[in-house]
Write a protein that binds this DNA or RNA. Structure first.
Lengths: 250, 250
DNA sequence: ACCTGAACACCGTTCAAGT
DNA sequence: ACCTGAACACCGTTCAAGT
């Protein structure tokens, strides 16, 4: 076997997180990609990624927005660099079996995305491909293989798991959450769905009407864990070859 | 049993799709929510949802953007109305067992999102709650229950499946796809990930390096089907109660 | 009562002109 | 060669003023 615990564990031991805490910037710092990403990160932490616009970042660095384009291709690329920077802080735990460790890592990834409103949304669009993203992908893939999944299922499964966790995070980081000005008001958006679900017409949506309690029920944590665990179980149980039989379905 | 095929099948037989083809608008139509949604839909179809801004829609309707706010709360709400409108066109097939029918419905939903660049992205953020969204949710839920899933797993599973399909669509509807000006160039973004994956360092990302072919392999269709089928299998095999045992994991 | 012109406060990105 | 002021082409949303 080519994988080993020793190779997997060093994941996340990069120094990528150092710039995060480096706040001793001179008044007029020398412009560089690193400083730009750093400034973007600070704005994202304080006010959400949506506020970390080219103009705003430039202002933070005492320059004009045009200057940023010397080091950064566009806003999407900049936000991608921020995500990858943050991903460097993720670390694998040594505790638990492969399943617990996978869940913990995915949870940490989720929590990271939620901590920076707007980040999940851009992660979804960006198709991240930075070095730390690759490390995260590698860690999950290694865990699934360690858990006994065949490498093809493990590969596609890792893709699906990371995408799903990102989507959950994107769904939860509402625009309201990204805007600290708006009162937190966590019941608002929930009520809208709750209202639609509970008040659904049994004639047109009989199953929703009959199971509204289950649809709306469960703490976020229990639901999250169940979903991830069920997905992994499904990936472990479903062979890819099987598909070639009724593959003509579309 | 309270669910029945007859109740499930009428799903999608609304007239919501009629306005889509109604292009015989007078030069200066009377402003109404319906006309606004209709105009937004047309712009979205032709140029992508991103171009369907308040200003652009207002221009299409020969008025100022302020006038739209009489009928629509904000851009997000308008885009949500467009999604729900389009969802009205989805229909259940009678062919196949519950699994095939679920897959076909989810596929149709996916294809719909992909057909309107930007729609998936906004569906992800919006937490849709319109009547046709509820109908779609109800249809999937009904199919999973018909397939034998307990109602609690079916409920959470439906949520996860719809979220995942939306996320896949959002991932595939790149900003490039939303912008018809940009040359289609489908190899571009793929190459970026392909490059990162293939060129990954075996020292830092051993599993990615070892399995790059599997990670990048598979036609989109096979991958999509495997993922959805595996998820459903996992939901069917994983009891929610089980979670309360090691629920203290976080 | 209903509608809207005009304004406010922003955006990303480019490019000609400066140092 | 490197940097950037100023401009171009947009945004969402509000509100005072009109009909």
């Amino acid at each position: 076997m080519f994988f080993s615990i020793e190779i997997v564990y060093p994941y996340g031991v990069t120094d990528s997180t150092t710039p995060v805490s480096r706040r001793d910037r001179p008044a007029k710092p020398p412009l560089s990609r690193e400083w730009i990403v750093d400034a973007t990160l600070e704005i994202a932490r304080r006010e959400g990624l949506a506020k970390a616009t080219m103009r705003r970042v430039a202002q933070e660095l005492d320059t004009g927005p045009a200057s940023l384009y010397v080091y950064v291709a566009n806003t999407a690329e900049l936000h991608g660099a921020v995500l990858d920077q943050l991903l460097g802080a993720l670390k694998l735990t040594r505790r638990g079996d492969y399943l617990e460790r996978t869940e913990t890592l995915l949870r940490d990834y989720h929590d990271l995305l939620v901590a920076y409103p707007g980040l999940a949304r851009s992660a979804l669009v960006m198709r991240p491909a930075g070095p730390n993203w690759l490390r995260l992908f590698d860690a999950v893939l290694g865990l699934l293989i360690e858990g006994g999944l065949e490498s093809d299922r493990a590969s596609w499964g890792t893709d699906a798991l990371l995408l799903h966790v990102t989507a959950i995070a994107a769904e939860h980081s509402t625009p309201a959450a990204a805007d600290p000005d708006a009162a937190v008001d966590p019941g608002r958006k929930i009520t809208e769905i709750e209202q639609a679900t509970r008040g659904s017409d049994p004639a047109t949506t009989p199953h929703v009407a009959a199971h509204s309690a289950e649809i709306l029920g469960g703490t976020g944590g229990a639901r999250w864990t169940w979903t991830i665990r069920a997905m992994i179980a499904g990936f472990a149980a479903t062979a890819i070859e099987t598909l070639d039989r009724p593959a003509s379905v579309r």
